[in-house]
Write a protein that binds this DNA or RNA. Structure first.
Lengths: 219, 219
DNA sequence: TAGTGGTCTAGACCACAGC
DNA sequence: CTGTGGTCTAGACCACTAG
């Protein structure tokens, strides 16, 4: 679909290396892709992938969040928890329950679960300020983990209403986080419930800053 | 912080071009960055940017959504709309209101606004199946637009409850979309309200597939 | 001034598509 | 078999940084 590297090099009187450099820039930006042995082809824009900003300990405006520990425990997991953490056997699990504050008002409630391992931090002041990856990765490199989010809308009921000091049926943004090692072992699971008026997530898409790489590239 | 290109080339007995290729791979993956005239430095992991999947006309499971037009109109904008669309003067605005169905049940309500331009589609069957960028970009290239999302949790009230055929106080995922041209002119604004049980957004983060590029790279 | 990364050249060999 | 992209080499010159 595009002229070959050699043709381009000849047409513009530049070396093939330079042509390749230019094409690779276009490829990185998502405009084209190469098929070895065939040639270069243009790529249709991907319109369903966005860059999402999210930081557990910062809201969208960048204000810091302070946390108050409600509970830290080591418990035997129930069936549900064993399933979420994909525990092969019945291993102990660390529970951390926290409230998040911004400007001295409650803005979120947070529950985290991690398979118990020696060396994981259980010291209050460490837990208070650490982000989820830091908590679960005491011995591992931050470079080697993966993380997934699920984002839902829900409403406050019963216990959560009380903890967040709001009426029932108040809208909440529920963010479920899962941490994985490089070999897909679950090392952490958490749910955070944000007051809807406190957290609004932002995402954006624009070409050339896109995540075209992670698409099946059917021709 | 890292050995220079020449040092690496000598150490491994490979050409400098090959060293540069390797380093550029690490740079693309977000592990290092280069400072011209100085050298290469390692980059701290960015943990607050995710890849979000979202498609107005598909839910997270990939099921297609069918839409039913409630209203298509050309109206003079009110103050709020002029502000959102950043209209310099009082230009007419296209309104499209739709209901989304999946498996014959209502799953979302959608409102879209676009500054009126000649050539924009106002034909029912075109509107029904088109995505937002397609609607607003009749004359422009999909390559040249930008798009931002805001994601909130809210609850159904009054009119929206009726349209969605649910009780008041039902949790909804509200997604606000804005479309821009390359020079930041607003060409579309929309709000979609999804039943919370229908839409759950997914995002993920893993190193090397990350969006490190779009960070201020303070040293 | 010496060293760094950024850019470019003119070759070479390979695995792979497609005829 | 020829042409494609993928990989690699051994040079060259430039702009920039830092002592």
């Amino acid at each position: 679909m595009l002229p070959s590297e050699n043709e381009l090099a000849e047409e513009y009187n530049i070396s093939r290396v330079t042509v390749r450099k230019s094409l690779s820039l276009l490829e990185q930006a998502g405009y084209i892709y190469s098929a070895p042995g065939k040639g270069y082809f243009i790529r249709e824009p991907v319109t369903n992938k966005y860059i999402l900003s999210f930081n557990e300990m910062n809201n969208t405006n960048g204000q810091s969040i302070f946390s108050k520990l409600l509970e830290v425990n080591v418990i035997p997991p129930d069936a549900d928890l064993m399933n979420e953490l994909k525990l092969p056997e019945e291993r102990y699990v660390i529970v951390i329950k926290r409230l998040f504050f911004s400007d001295n008002t409650v803005v979120a409630y947070d529950e985290k679960y991690m398979p118990y391992e020696k060396g994981l931090p259980l010291v209050e002041r460490e837990i208070k300020c650490a982000t989820f990856p830091e908590l679960a990765c005491k011995n591992k490199s931050l470079f080697s983990i993966k993380k997934s989010l699920k984002i839902r809308s829900t409403t406050s009921q019963g216990n959560i209403s009380k903890l967040l000091n709001i009426e029932d049926n108040h809208p909440l943004l529920e963010i479920e986080q899962k941490l994985y090692t490089a070999d897909n072992k679950v090392i952490g699971w958490s749910k955070t419930y944000y007051l809807s008026e406190f957290l609004e997530l932002n995402a954006y898409w624009s070409f050339g800053q896109n995540s075209y790489e992670m698409n099946d590239m059917s021709e």
